Amino acid sequence: MELIKKYFPNLLDQQIYRLSSLKNLYAYWNAHVNLVSRKTFHDFYQQHVLFCLGIAKVFSFYPGSCVMDLGTGGGFPGIPLSIVFPNTKFVLVDSIRKKIKIIEKIIYNLHLKNVFPIWIRAEKLENKFDFVVTRGVKKINIIHNWIKDKFKYKSNSIIKNGALYLKGGNLYNELKEFPHAIEYPLNHYFDEPFFITKKVIWISNI
């Protein structure tokens, strides 16, 4: 948790409390359902929470924005982002019902009022969003086909509506068909070696 405070020194007490509560909550529920990789759980705040908050380093969601977390899994990146952006609505979407059920319990324990988990496949969701965030393992072109018609036409932000992908490694081939994509290397914001290959990719809905 000290890592979070290091890079986000202006968090309010309630935000610090909620972020500090995450590890114990996930430790408990991870024993029932594999929400977070047990191989990386020892490094929970770096590899999961701080990585997800990399989005908050490169972009601030405006109050009133509506954001879909596609394939949320254990609630990442949606839950950490919802704590940092309490005036933004986050819709957490996943096709695995048992994960959504546990996310509901985590949200209840954290008293989060701006998070709404839904058990559904993203391509079947009829809602429209300002932004989509995802820490998925699928290739960007596959995810793009799922979400290309999910955006609101009008933006309430200074940038166009679009998707923010948390990715790692060499993305040259994945981004060939997205020449307008913008890469934000997270090692520009975080000092730890884990972030050397990690990036946020922003692709506007144009």
Rank of each mutant, 00 (worst) to 15 (best):
N161Y: 01
A163Y: 01
V58H: 07
D94P: 03
Q14K: 15
V33F: 11
L53R: 04
S82F: 08
F116N: 12
K113F: 07
L3N: 07
P86G: 09
G64K: 09
S20A: 13
S20V: 00
S95A: 14
K101P: 00
L171R: 09
P80E: 12
M1C: 09
K199E: 06
V58R: 11
N34E: 09
W29G: 13
D69L: 13
G64V: 05
L11R: 02
E126S: 12
K138N: 05
I203C: 14
Y153E: 15
D94L: 02
N127F: 10
Y28G: 01
G78K: 05
L166N: 06
N114H: 07
F151C: 07
P185T: 04
K57V: 06
R121N: 08
E2T: 13
K89E: 15
V49D: 07
S37R: 11
S37A: 14
F129V: 06
K6E: 08
P86E: 02
Q15I: 02
L125Q: 10
V115K: 01
N10F: 13
S20C: 04
L164M: 15
H42M: 01
H188A: 00
R135K: 13
Y26L: 07
G168K: 07
G71F: 14
C52H: 03
N24I: 06
F41L: 15
Q46C: 08
C66W: 10
K148Y: 05
L35C: 07
R97C: 10
V33W: 12
I100V: 15
L164H: 05
W202Y: 15
F41D: 10
N127E: 15
N34T: 11
A122P: 08
D69K: 06
N24C: 00
K39H: 13
V67P: 10
V58L: 05
Q14R: 11
N141Y: 03
A31W: 00
F59Q: 04
K105F: 04
L70Q: 04
Y165L: 12
F76I: 06
S65C: 15
Q46D: 00
G169R: 09
L81N: 03
L22K: 01
A181H: 00
S21R: 03
E183W: 00
V137D: 12
L3I: 11
H180Q: 13
P185L: 05
I16Q: 13
G71I: 10
G75P: 09
I142C: 03
K150N: 10
I140C: 11
S21G: 08
G136Q: 04
F151R: 04
K113G: 08
G78W: 01
H42R: 09
R121Y: 02
C66D: 04
I106Q: 02
F151I: 01
C52D: 12
K6V: 05
H111S: 13
F195C: 03
Y172T: 08
G71K: 06
G136R: 08
Y189I: 00
V36I: 15
V84W: 06
N109D: 08
R135S: 03
Y153A: 12
Q47C: 11
Y17E: 14
W202K: 13
R97W: 01
I118C: 01
I107L: 09
K124T: 07
G73E: 07
D94T: 01
T88Y: 11
G169P: 10
D130M: 02
H180G: 04
G54Y: 11
R121F: 05
Y153S: 15
I118G: 02
K98C: 02
I107A: 02
E104A: 09
T72K: 08
P185K: 09
N109G: 10
